[in-house]
Design a protein around this nucleic acid. Structure first.
Lengths: 155, 155
DNA sequence: GGTGAAATCCTCGAGTG
DNA sequence: CACTCGAGGATTTCACC
């Protein structure tokens, strides 16, 4: 487990809120030099704490009006890798989560409308040896913009 | 519905893959001037297609080893706003999704370990007038890094 | 972790089709 | 209206303290 101190967490919190914050802005906020902040971000990338940066998009404004979670059930013989592969082949699938217990997987999908959702579910059912699906239609979502405080660690 | 053309989608795709890409890099990639790319990004923010930028974090490396989805059920009298408020008060909750049908809400949580997960579920059950929960423990996750192609629009 | 300098990048006004 | 160009200022980056 890599050591990530409080200052690292402050850097992460600032980047969580705005991933394009400049090093100078963060340096002023934290009270370090610009180079020191850059070195910390570089290091957080190297040790894999930071896996990347991305843009946050309002998908509804792009025509993807419907968001849903679909629970997938498979026969006991199906490999996890097959589950992930078949689900990932569908571009409307935003994320695949394999699950302990029942169901076997949960996928997050974004589609244009309910007809499109129907299509995607049909495609998933045909793609692998899916034995059952249950779809949760999202009415509203409230993602958290901020970062959780650092967990208590052994001193 | 705002008009977002193919070049905008290319910009979004590039920023999706790396939210800190420089305008010059994107300009070279797309074949526009730096200023033109910047104006497009500015405009995408103004019309709300881009809602922000953020850093992607490997939470397991920060000590949040367990990820789960919990389905929440409430009495028919509970307001959506109350569901969202009580769930959002728990810092371990990463996102709240209200759902059409059964269950009433789905929350995404990140916790240190299974004991911590137990605590959080107990806290949620006590917080509102929750009538039932079902927790899906995540074994693995495969979020999609890329952006879906632009949906077909009316010409 | 700080400093300083060179290279790069951002920003914005002016001009063009 | 969206684009390009260009100059000034800000930012990034890196070697060295």
């Amino acid at each position: 487990m890599p050591d990530v101190d409080d200052i690292d967490h402050r850097v992460l919190r600032l980047l969580r809120e705005d991933g394009r914050r400049t090093f100078s802005e963060m340096a002023a906020e934290i009270g370090l030099s610009v180079a020191a902040v850059k070195r910390r971000v570089d290091r957080l990338r190297e040790i894999g704490v930071i896996t990347g940066f991305t843009v946050q998009i309002d998908h509804a404004k792009l025509g993807w009006g419907i968001e849903a979670f679909t629970e997938l059930r498979y026969p006991g013989t199906t490999l996890v890798s097959d589950i992930v592969r078949t689900a990932s082949e569908v571009p409307e699938v935003q994320a695949v989560y394999t699950i302990a217990g029942d169901p076997d997987a949960l996928i997050h999908v974004r589609v244009r409308d309910l007809g499109h959702l129907q299509q995607i579910i049909d495609r998933l059912r045909r793609a692998g040896d899916v034995t059952g699906t249950k779809t949760l239609l999202v009415l509203g979502s409230w993602p958290r913009a901020t970062l959780a405080p650092p967990p208590r660690r052994a001193p």
